[in-house]
Structure formats: structure tokens, C-alpha cells
Design a protein around this nucleic acid. Sequence first.
RNA 1: GGACGUUUAGCUCAGUUGGUUAGAGCGUUCGAUUCACAUUCGAAAGGUCGCAGGUUCGAAUCCUGCAACGUCCACCA
Length: 924
Amino acid sequence: MAIIMDTSTPFSADMKDLPKAYEASNIEADIYQKWEDSGAFNPDELLKLDPRYKDAEPYCIVLPPPNRTGNLHMGHAKTVAIEDILIRFHRMLGRKTYWVPGTDHAAIATQVKVEQQLIKQGIKDPRRELGREKFLEKVREFAQGSRDNIVSQCKAMGGSMDWKLEKYTLDEQRNRAVNQMFKMMHEDGLIERGYRVVNWDPRFKTTLSDDEVLHKETQAELITFKYDKDFPIAISTTRPETKFGDTAVAVNPDDKRYAQYVGQTFTANYCGKEITVKVVADKEVDMNFGTGALGVTPAHSMIDAEIAERHGLPMVQVINEEGCMKNEAGPEFFNLTTIEARKKAVQMLDDNGLVLERKDILQNLMVAERGGETVEQLPMFQWFVRVNKKFKLRQDTLRKWKKGDEATLKDLMRHSVESGQIRILPENQVKIYFHWVDNLRDWCISRQIWFGHQIPVWYKLQSDMYETYERDPDSFARTIRSLGNSPIVALEKPEGERWVQHPDTLDTWFSSGMWTFSTLGWPDENEWNKNRAYHPTDVLETGRDIIFFWVARMILMTTYALGEVPFNDAYLHGLVLDEKGRKMSKSLGNTIEPLEMIPKYGTDAVRLSLVMGTSPGMDQKLSEDKIKDFRNFTNKLWNISRFILQSTSRAVISTEDVGRLEKSLADKWILSKYYDVQNRVTQLLEQYQFSQAGELLRDFTWGDFADWYLEVAKIEKNKDAMLWHILPRLLKLWHPFMPFVTEYIWEVGKMGEQSLIVSEWPSGEMKDEGLVKDFEQVKNLITDLRRLRSENGVEPVKLVDFAVVADEASRRLIEENMEVVKAMSRAQSVTLVESIAEGWATAVSGTMTIGLDLAGAIDVAAEKSKLQKEIDGLKPYIASTEAKLQNKEFTSKAPEKVVAGMQAKLDEAKAKISALEERLTSLK
RNA sequence: GGACGUUUAGCUCAGUUGGUUAGAGCGUUCGAUUCACAUUCGAAAGGUCGCAGGUUCGAAUCCUGCAACGUCCACCA
């Protein structure tokens, strides 16, 4: 038998010194450094560490690039924890793992943050005062600082990604990818410049996509009025200041009240300004709301713009980019803010007796996701990705379309998931995804902020205009926005005079949408070819709150550019909330900071607290207490290992050899349990059931292994081979969850030539259910003996005498395990008898009756009532089970296994009740 | 307005395709400290599985309705 026993204990000197409590903060940085230096994080250097990675199948995850807006919060920590589990698990399974790290410039979020900081520092209008280049310098400086924080925090979390391969959504290579994508989409007619109503943030002077606008419920006044006294129809609005831009009144085609006016055009004097209004019939109008007539303002409402398009109505813009009234609202209103104009208009209408009704309603106000300012809808020239336009595919796509076939971007997004080429987990997110895709409108991708990829479009300027540009780039930016379609445009930077790049930048999601393949080198041929095998990536793991922003747009970009999906699985985890279930936020002051928790409780504890006690896709509540509980477990694992390292000699023993070893019942039991847990954990990890896998492991480690087997080992002795068979394997199973403590123990115990991180995931089987049952019976007996002591107030340390009445099989079992039973129940003697002597306390344990010698100090009345209570508790169960078993419908329809199991339980209960009754009568 | 989710022990949550008397951790109560670990060990108490119907031999689990809470989406001007 090939057991290598090391009796010289070469490291016993170190072992004696192992501290009683595991001190995470002393070792984590060193361990991480060792991993990093070893090359284990790098997919190519893995081959040098172990030949088994040579022709290994790739396994790739891209890290959702954290925004360079500051520090990582618990949500990021959760992302790193889960992805690191996946990566470490697959690395140990022998996959060539590539975890692509990087950060996101997060255009608007970062710029807003820096702008606010500068304002706090006393710079009133930072953009204007600093100018584009100086301002951008400040943003870049901040972004760099954030990046450094992010990297060190990912490392602190134990993330095993290779930072030498770090990418950035705003670096040069990503810029080439962005430009290439823009050019392709432009050529295919999918990107176009158009004059449309967009979401406009008047404070930061930029457009926003639909997803960057939130709806906040607000109190508003709905007023019902007529434009002037001659106008025949009354309408309702909460925004009278926009009504200068009305070009129609829309009514439902079935509305008889207004049928006579449909088709007519009226001129009205609205608050001193002449407006021309046509009455149109449109089925979108709700007859039952307000007066049933809707004032149509095409320039300041996307919905009205759609109505206007259907009826060929003109667009009159009355609010400008500052959020103030334009000349078109008349001289009296010119330059008023919208709020001032609203008040004034209501006043004027009131003065002229035109208001029919005023009432307060709740309304959804559009506000910016970042900054929280009111968002206006304004018409302007912007760039759009057209999601509903058919285009000719550049390659075979999604195993459905051939090169040259026609499809829309929406078709691609839908088919990716519908065909099962992307599996979205948990499944309930699929519906949400489809709903979003089906309702998606053209995506406005141009932003007027400065931090981001500049739109890759160049204009040839006339000399006078070029002078303006040189003198004042900002004013040029405004000019270019108001220009119609500019005459000379290039999609790559031309050589030559007076070519100027478009001053606008791209929506940040345009670049992050390409993250899975731009990070792998696309469109640079060499690098992309080298990394081709990693795409589609295996799994995209991220918070469920960014499915629209990011997940969906990655699907759009990738299927378009490559004809394949960006990832096979999308696993969306829930949000990390505070202990009351509220979102963690700085303003509420309820955040739990990873960087405070890690030094206090250790990274492993933080990781466990983010993974355990959760289920896929569900939000979780986190508290410091929870982290503390897992710190305790970390320490438990440490002490289990410390005990084994200090009290045994190292042994290396294979699964085959341990099978041939001479073993006690407890040995066979723990092996059978271990292998079962090992294989179930493997399966659960493959199914993304991290919590269940972890809990199974914890129950085994703390319960079966520590509380039972190690205690048995102290009694039965000579367990070196057994313990050294199980412990290293157990550390391996734990490694993805708690990499630091496991690697440290592995190292201290010299458990392998290589680090745990690149060790092989354990496999093999060993099952013996019969033996497991036998040991469970012994366990139950011990527990029952302990309970008998405890119930009778006998101190745990006091040695006592027990007696057991048992059948033949149980007697043999007890005799064979007598040492264990005695030691673990703190017994001086355990005697097998025909009946329990008078004056002893008794209880029934399964089919056995057990007795405890109280030296006559037994309270007979209490004993009797205890027995009676137990009998009474059992009776209804027996009655109902008997009834079930007599029911032919049940016995004929239920599976045999269920019926047999029930019968066995019933027999057991009957045996127990007769034992109890016997004891009761003997007490009389 | 639409969609999704949650409701199981005091708290946080498990509960696989319906199947034997519903589980865990924390907390609580009682007891224990030289012998790996008090960041520990032993023992116990605690639940008519949100409510009302239905399907079934059998429901925490499937169906219908209702309620409470939460999240997302949406143009009631």
C-alpha cells in the first residue's frame, strides 16, 4: 500500500507555534503576492506551473469593469467573490482560466463626480473656467486614483485575475475598437445623425439615454383650460409653459364630442403668443382622461413627437438647452425658467378666466439618474443607433442567418436568448430582458460631456468656421449641434487642413458593450486571433440591476460585430442591502465598507458572508454580525487543521489505498460522508448554487468532521492516514470560497509540492449507506445518553454509569463501538442489560431503552409525567400513519418506497411506545 | 397601469421533479474552561409554512383568488 508516512515531523517546530486564533490580516497580503508571482493568475503561465494545463479547455470570464468613480462597495465585493469562486473552481478542474480584469471610465458618472468636487472647491463653472483640456486633465487624474483603489480592493478581496492584463474602456486599444464599430454600423446604416426629441439634462448640458432617466413620483398641478376664449376645446396639462409649442390638439377618433372639429386648423392666442393648432384624431388618446383632448407639443414630448409624425405636424421648440424659455414663447416669457414661466402662464390664464379646473395629482417627473436634475425633452441633432432598421449581415450570425441576410439589431438580441445560445440565470430575468428588448427605441449614443470616446467623425470646416473653432472650441461645439447635416464628413481621421473631430463623446455603454471581445483584442488581428478561443466567454456574472445598461447592450454589439453571442451564461446576482433591507447608500449612512470589514474579520469571512445564505438572483441583507459569524467559521477550520497538524504525522494516501485500509465504523462513515459531500459540492458549483455548496461543506466540516469524527479520532487513535486523506481534500473544496486560510494551512502543513490554487480538484467515490446508518445509530445513542444526563442535571464532566436495553443487532453495534460510546457520553460504564434497574432515570433511544444511575435520587412523579408526555406525543402520529397505511387509495397509488418507509417508521414508533409504556408500568 | 419577486422558528434564510414526524445559522434557556478551537463544547425550547378556496391517496411545494411588502418598466396628457 502506497502510504507515505512521515514520522520525522520535520515541521513540528513550526506547528507548535501556530497561534490559537487565525489572524487573517497577518498573512493575506503575502499569500496574494505569492500567487501573483507564481503566475497562477495568468492563463499562459499556468502551463509552466502544471503540464495538465497544456491542451486544457479555456475558461473565460470578463470582470464587469467597475466604474472609476471611487471605491468598491459590497456589490462589487460580491461580484469579485462569486467570479473568483468560479475561476478558482475551474482552474482546479484543469481549465485554462482567463479572468479579464479592467475598469470603466463611466463617462457621465465620473465627469459629474469631478465637476461636483470642483464646485465644492469653489470653482463655480468648472467646464467653462478650465476649458476642455484642463478639465479633462482633472477628470483623468481622478479616474487614475479611482483605478488604483479599485485594483487594490480587488486584490484585497482575493480576486485571482491577472492585473498585468488589465484593460480600460477608455484606453487606446478600446478606442480602436470603438471607432471600428462606429464605422461598421455607420456603413450599415445603423448609426445615423437625426433631428429628434431627446432627453436633455439642462444642468450638465448633455443628452441622456432612456435608461439614464428615472421617473420620480412628484406632486403636480393639473390644470384644465382653453388656449383662448374663442378656442372650442379645453385641454389639460401639468406643464402650461410648454403649450406655446403646441401644434395640434389630438382627440380619440371615437370621441363624438370633438368629431366636428377634426381636420380643422385654428389660430389661438395663448398667453400673448399666437399659435396654430390643428385638431387631429389619434387612437392613442384616452377619451376618459381630463377633457379627452390632448394638446400636442411635438418638440417637448417623445410621445407627442410620435403623434406629430403620424399626422405630419410641425415642431415648435420653446425651451432651450439651458432649460429656459425661447423667443418662440413670446417676449414676455423669453428667458424665464420653465418654473417661472409655468407660474406666469397659469396666472395669465386665470386672469383671463380660461382655467376650468385645477387639481393636484401625482405625476412621474423625469430626472437624471446621475445628478437628479429634471430632464427636459428637446429636439436636436444627435447620433442614434437604429435598433429597428434592417441591415445586411456581414457574416453568418447566431446559427440562424447567413451572411447577406437581413435582420434588425432587435432580431439579433431576441434570438440570442430565444434560441438558448445565451442562458440567462435565474430564469425569471428572461422575461424582463424580452420586455426591454421589445420596447427598445433607437439608442441615442452622443453625449455633450467631454470625458469619453470622441465620436469618430471628422468635419472639413470652412476657413471662417475654422477660425471660430480655434478661438472658442466650446462655442463651435454648440454650433455643430445646431447644424443640419454637415457637408463634408470623414469616418477616419484624414490628413489635411481644417479637419476637426466631432466634439461630442459616446455613451459610456457604447464602449462597455464591446467589453467581451474588445478586451480580447478585437479588431487588432494578431491579438484577437490569439485570444479567439476565449470567446464566447463562458459566463457573464453581474448584478441584476444592470441587465439593461450592460448585458443587453453587450448582446447587441457582439452579435452584430461577430455573429456570435458574448457569453454562454449570464448569471445575475441580487443586490446587497443593509440589514433592514434598504439599499446601501452614503447618504443614508448605512453602508458596510469592504475595506473596513476585511482587516477586521478577514477576506475569507467577507467572501463567505456575501455568498452563503443567499439564493441566485435574490437580494440579500448583510450585517456585520453575519461577517463575524463567518470569521468564527474561518477560525474553526483553522483549529481543525491546527489540531491535525499538531497531533498527527503527515501521510499521503490515495483514494484506492484508503479503501484498502483497515477501518473502524467511524472511519467508514466519515469517508462515505466526505465523498458524498465532495461530489455534491462539485455538482452544485457547476450549477452556480454557491450557497448550497457552501452550506453543505460547512455542515460537514463543523458537524460531521469536527464535532464527531475528530472526537472519535481522539479515542480510537492512529488516524493519521485517515485525517491526512480527508483534510487536504477538504481544503481543496473550500479553496474557491476561502482562498487565504486554505492556502495558508496547505502551506504550513506542506500538503503539496504546488500551491493549493493550482492543485487538482478532488474526485473519486466511496459509498456505503448501510455503514452510514449504523454509525448514525451510534451517534443517536450518544446524543440520547447526553440528553439523559442533561435532563437529570448531571454535570457534563461527571463520569456516570449507563445501562442499555437493546436487541441483538444493536447490542453488537454498541459492543463494537464501546470505547467511543463511553468516552463521548462521559460514562464510567455502559452495561447492556435486560431491564433498567429501579431508581434509575430512563429514556427511549430509537428501539433501545437507556438508563442512568442516579443512585436512587430519582423523582418518580416527574419521570412518569415525562414518559406519559412522550407517549401522548407519539400517539396521534401512530394513529394517522396507521390510517394512511390502511387507505387502499394510498397504498395502491403511492410509490412502494414511500409506503415501505412509512411502515418502517410506524414499526419504530410502535416499538418506542411499547418501551415507554413498559417503563411506565414498571415505575408504579 | 403593466410585469416580476417575496411572505416558512424571535431574526436571516434553505427546502431539489408534490411523498415518511418541515431544516440550518444567529438569538434565547440550561450546563460546561488545563487536554485543537469560549471566535469553543454539550443539551433544550421555539413553526397550524401570509389568508381563502381548489386539484390529489398525499400540498410549504401545483392551480385560482385575495392581502401585505419590495423591485423594475410605462406617455394618463
